[in-house]
């Protein structure tokens, strides 16, 4: 099994003047290719902080981070940005689509911006991804004219655009109604099953977590993990 993520002894302490707040206290976490892992925990348990560190948006105070065999915790800001662009995909609680662009342009954006333009190949891939997330008839729709669930599906397609090694999703269904949430989760499972894409999904929703292949629970900055079998029905 190919190792996608290896985080060892990850610590994060926030400092405010002389006051220190330890949030993560030595996290060891590994993810293999094709896993769909849920990260559970109460509010303030450090879920988002851990995701931000794994997503190279935040530097750990201590520990080592290896993604797809590459040690990334010491990379410069520029190299981290390049790494995020090529190897990581993000889905946030809020879709964060660019309102002045169409669904297709939003999906193609992570590939087009560094390349300086949307090539025909990028356009084709963006269309394929949108078709796959069930938005074939919304490809050229402005992002502002899509429903909440559709926007989140576009966000998933955007996260897949550069064929990332790891997709990090922070409460991806948190802002959706039950039907839309089901659709989005089904979609992530489908991509996971068909493409072997690796997902790390941060959620506080047990229903979402139950449909993942593995559940990790973060409690007071420490990780406890267990394995669960995926279930078919998601009840939200």
């Amino acid at each position: 099994m190919t190792r996608v993520l290896e985080a060892l002894g990850i610590e994060k302490t926030f400092r405010n003047g002389d006051e220190e707040t330890p949030v993560l206290k030595g996290i060891d976490l590994t993810l293999d290719k094709g896993e769909l892992v849920a990260l559970l925990g109460a509010s303030g348990s450090g879920k988002s902080t851990l995701l931000s560190i794994i997503g190279l948006l935040l530097a750990p105070t201590a520990g080592s981070l290896t993604i797809s065999g590459e040690r990334v915790d010491g990379l410069s800001e520029k190299m981290r940005a390049q790494f995020r662009n090529r190897r990581l995909g993000f889905v946030f609680q809020f879709h964060h689509l660019l309102p002045d662009f169409t669904a297709m342009e939003n999906v193609a954006f992570p590939a087009a911006a560094p390349a300086g333009g949307i090539s025909p190949a990028m356009r084709e891939r963006a269309r394929d991804l949108l078709t796959r997330v069930g938005l074939k008839d919304r490809i050229d729709f402005p992002a502002t004219r899509l429903s909440g669930g559709q926007k989140q599906r576009v966000a998933i397609a955007r996260a897949l655009m550069n064929r990332p090694d790891l997709i990090i999703a922070d409460e991806p269904t948190g802002n959706l109604d039950r039907d839309s949430a089901n659709l989005v989760l089904d979609l992530m499972r489908e991509v996971n099953r068909d493409d072997g894409a690796t997902f790390l999904i941060c959620t506080h929703d047990e229903g979402v977590a139950e449909r993942c292949s593995r559940q990790l629970t973060l409690d007071d900055g420490r990780l406890a993990s267990n394995v669960s079998e995926p279930v078919d029905g998601f009840t939200g």
Binding site: G55, L57, A81, R84, F90, H96, L98, F109, P110, A113
Partner: peptide, 16 residues
């Protein structure tokens, strides 16, 4: 800011 932030999260270069 939030749009720019999301671009930065996707690794869009600062220069862009």
């Amino acid at each position: 800011r939030s749009e720019v932030g999301i671009m930065r999260a996707f690794g869009v270069p600062s220069r862009f």
